[in-house]
Each structure stands twice: as C-alpha cells, then as structure tokens.
Design a binder for these strands. Sequence first.
DNA 1: AGCACGCCGACT
DNA 2: GTCGGCGTGCTC
Length: 713
Amino acid sequence: VSEGESSIVAVAVDAPLHAGMQEPLLYRVPAGQAAPAAGTPVRVPLGRRRALGVVWGGAEAAGAPPPEGMVLRELEGPLAAALPALPGSWRELVTFTAGYYHRGLGEVALSVLPPALRRTSPAALARRVARLGAGLAVPADAATAATARPSAARAPLHATALSADQAAAVLATEAAAAERAAGATPAPILLFGATGSGKTEVYLRAAEAALAAGGQVLVLVPEINLTPQLEARFTARFPGRVIATLHSGLPPARRLDHWLLAHLGHADLVLGTRTAVFTPMPRLSLIVVDEEHDASFKQQEGARWSARDLAVWRGRQLRVPVLLGSATPSLESWAQADAGRYRRVAMPARIGGGAWPVVRFADLAALPRPARGQPPVVLAPELLAAIEARRGRGQQSLVLLNRRGFAPVLWCGACGWKSGCPHCSAWRVFHKSDRTLRCHHCGFTERVPRACPDCGNLDIAPLGRGTEKLAEQLAAALPQARIARIDADTARRAGALQRDLAAVHAGDVDVIVGTQIVAKGHDFRRITLVAAVDPDGALFSSDFRAPERLFALLMQAAGRAGRDAAVAGGSEMWVQTAFPHHPLYAALAAHDHAAFAARQLEERAAIGLPPFVHLALLRAEAKELAVAEAFAREAAGLVAGAAPEAAAVTVHAPVPPALRRLAGAERVQLLLESQSRPALQRVLAAWLPQLHALRARHRGLLRYAVDVDPVAI
DNA sequence: AGCACGCCGACT
DNA sequence: GTCGGCGTGCTC
C-alpha cells in the first residue's frame, strides 16, 4: 500500500454479473485503516444496503479500472478481527467455479459461505470465534453421538480385519497419500464397491491415516438423510476427534459454528452435503465423495456447479487424494478411469459372505386381469406370496414405488376433467391422508373437491397409484403384516425419518412401502426381499441419463436386501415390469455394472453424448411461450458469431423441457454441444454478455440461465 | 438477487 | 386522499 494516497481494495459482493460491471467492485479504505488482506470478510455499502463482501485483493484484482471519474465508496471495515481471512486456495476455488459455470464471482463467493455469517454482528462473531477457540470448543453437538443407531453402535471401535478387496483399496489410498507426501499429485481413486462391500471401512482407514498425519478430512454425501448414519460411524471410530457436519438441515447458528470449526482448523472431520465442498480447511488432506454418481451433487439453482467435479478440482489444486465411492459410478467417472486419469479400485465382494440377491421378474403382461367387479390386482401373485412367506419367517420386505401420494391424478368419468395444475404442465397428485390435491413441482395445494369442478359430477376417481394407495392395498392383501410407508411426506416432520427407520431396525415392521428415500444408503439388516413395483417409466424417458439413474437406483435397492450374512441366503430382488427382457434389467440380474457402463458408453460415443461431448444448456422462461422461444431462437443465432471457436460448437434447435410449464412460466431450453471443453467455454464467455443485451429486446422474458454440464435434460 | 422508485387501481 | 400491485433500473 503506497503511503499518502488512500488505498483501494477489490471486494467480491453478492451482486449479479452484468455487462459493463466488472467484478470484484472497488472500494476505498477509510483513512487511518490498514487495507484488509485478501480473503478478509468485510462490510461494504452496496447500493442502498450494507452487504457482506470478501476482499479479493488490491485495485489490480478488479477486472478493469472503474469508469472515468467514478467516485469509489468507502468500505466499513473487517467483519471481525478474530475471523481469519479466507485462504488463497479458497479464493482460487471460487474463481474457478465462477468462471467455469459462468456466474458472478461475488455471487458464488457469498452463496457458499454460511448464510448466518451475513446476519451476524462483529461482536457476536468475535464471541463465537473466541468460544470455539477456547477448547470448550468441541461442542457436544458438533459430534452428535445421540443420533447413533443400534446397527452403527454395533460397529466395533477398533477396526476388524479387512477383506481382501478392502485391503487392496486401502493400499491404493496409502499409495495416493504417499504420492502426496512425495510432492506429486495423486490421481483420484474411483472406489467401485458393491453395496455391502465395505466402502465405509475404506473411507475410515484412509481418514485414520490422514488424521494421524495431522490432516483434516472432508467427506461429502449426497443427501442430508445420509449424514446421521455416516456420522455415527465416524464418531464411533474416532472418539475425541471433532466432527463438524454441514448441511442445510442444521439450525443456522449451529451451521455457522461448524463451518468456523473447520475454518479455524479445530474440526478434524467435516461431513456435509454439496456446499461443504467449499469449506475452508487449513489442513485438508483427504476428500471423500460418497455415492459420487448421485445427481444431488449438482447444484440446481443459481451457479449450477457440481460438488463432485469441484471436489476433484480441489483435490488436484491442493495435491490431495480424492476418493470417489459408488456401487454404480457415474459414466463420467467410469470413462475417466477407462482413460487412466482416475485409478479404479474394484471391491466386488460383499463382506461377511453376504450374497447378491437373486433377481426375479414379475411379468406385468402376464398378470391376470381381475374379473368384473373384483378388486384390482395389488402385485403379481407370486410376488405377494413371496412377501407373505418372508413375513412368516420374520424377515422384512421393501417395496419401492417412486411416486408419492395416493394417486397421481384425479379424473371425472362424466366430463373427462383431470386434476391438472393451473401453474404447471403436470397433474396435481391426490393425497388422501390430508385430503389435498398437490402439485409436486410448484407446491400448489388445494383441498380435494367433493365434486368435479367442471360438471359437478360427484363420482371423481383416482387414476393410478402412489405409495399411500399401495400401502393401503398391501394392508388389505396382507392383513397380518405390519406395514410402514416411508417417503418424503412421512419424513417431513423433524426426526420422523430417523424414528421410522429405528422402528424398521427394531423389527416392528414387516413391509416397508417407500420411494427412493429408503432405497439409498440405509443399512437395513433384516430385509431379505426388495421389490421395484413400477420402474419401467425411466426406460423410455427423453433424458439420456434416465437409464443410468434407474440402473443405479435398482442396484442400490437390491443392495438393501440381505446385508446380514446370517439371513442373506435366499434374498431376492423383484422387478415388476412389462419388459422383463430389457437389457438394463438383464445387467441388473447379472449384477454387472461394468457391462452396463460399457454398453451405455458405447451408445453415447456412437450418438455423441457425454462424456464424449460437453454440453451447456440455456434455459429461458417467460409468461408467454412465444417470448421464450423467440429469445432462445435469437440466442441460438448469436452463437456462430460469438467467438472463433464457435465452429467447434453445435447448437441444437430450441426445445421445451419435459415439464414445459412450471410455476406459471413457459420454458424453453437450448442445447450447445462441443467435443472441446475449451472451445465451449470460450464461446460461452463471449456469448453470455450478448444474451444480456438480447434480453432487453424481449419484453416479458422472466429469466434465463446457462447450465454447464447439465445433469438433467 | 435485493431494494428502491414510480405509476395506476380499490379501500377507509 | 393513501395502501400496494409489480414493471424497471441500479448496485464500485
């Protein structure tokens, strides 16, 4: 800082990127104050409000000098002297994210800090930091041992002997740690482990080594639901270590505390959902991404980053091993391993000799038609009999139906009215438990009408079935069975899901009816039969990734069966389908992800789909479909002239997405495709400012956004 | 994104 | 008379 002149700093603030506005914004440092160091959270005036910002550097850190003659405003000062500056590596990660996903630097920076940081006062923050640093630190809640479940508590404190597969995987993680120690950059490890093969034990061993060497460990999971279970395993294994959880379900103050514990270096382990990939951790030395194939790692609003991809980036940045675990790796990661850029470690065997369930098919085409006046067939008779037989032996069954509610649509037989959503191109679902019609896309809810709103007919009927109806039907068909329904509706109340799962673990339930919420990750011991009742829809979806997701879901579901070796013999996975000979189901029956992945990759290479090409998607929304279409059409026309690299980018015709109308907005999407990631990136960088200008010429356009590497199309 | 301003309709 | 609907514009 030169003396005499008042110094200037560049500050990232949460204002969207605009043409003619360069980020970060410049502020004057008040006379008498030292210029805050890069990474310092500061309070600044912004428009008519005061905002939280992060110092990015001196004046040179701004993209361009401010307009001639512009009067800079004065920053107020650091948020709290006791709060350490965010490290350079954190700013690099944010800079990369903003650039790659083409969003504002400040928008990304502020959106990945704990929300409570914006609202806290300097004094309160100083108290918080002092309390956490004082050692009473280790707040009882940072490691919530109270959530430990019986099955997890049963896990031995000291590691048991490793299976041969696990030993080989642990060796690979040790090799990666050794490369790091030698100053090399270890390749990410793709831990391809069947459900029940003991991936978690490998995470624990790798974490143990990293912790012993004085490092911090970051563990990412796709869903909040899965954190208590993994947390219990880590807590049991590392008593005395500080484990900080980070997810949106935490009360804001506690989330801030946990983030501070990580940032201050007091937390040894950070266990969190996708945003946790941005947690500043001064001694970070291992990153684990559990269920790396899961689409939840992709942020679906604002800056649409992928936490899994950023974890890999961060690992390379810090030369830290990255462990990507899955029983059904994403085709992106699979192809990286095929190309030798990731190290694939397979763990095919279930530990304790647990056998893979036998896969059986109930052919819907062969299902007997109910006689006139008879109740409909609940499930294929052989499947129903199998469930009842399991119950008789004291075993549990899990029946999966990926559709909440009682019936997906109500219908009037007299005039043909259906329960459409007034705001979306979708049906409102009939929920019998609270007598509502609910749109699952925009949330619009009304009481169920007594009569048809169009013609007054009293006889309106539910069409199709969801989990509510299936649970009801099963209760009628299996009068002796204790049936529990578990889906997002029953899990809505705080703690309800953990309570319901505990009841299952305690053996108080014979049959679970549930959506994918129960198919993922949970470690059930007594389930020996899993049935997917209506999975065919995804076979013919317009989204090219639908088969990959279905396969992963079914493989995970199958993995719920027979985790306990003592009862695993004879466990079954049932698929009730009209297409029992579909190759996807054949791969499931053979328990062969490698074959499935190889075939899908071949197809994708042939048609030119990811990971062989790179995609970006422009989504536009307007009240009038024509407005969104016109905008997308003109936007498409601008691509060719945007940059020299445009020749390497293919622009597809604008198409409506699967859900054309959502929450009162008509939507259109435009797909850009290129074999060259740099070419696509340069075209996007030149094209986006043009879109901002184009927007002004399309009155009525509600919003638009670009999604780089979209996961759902 | 906030957060203002501004310019028209239905209330006390 | 003003309370408030959401269109428009700006943020170093």
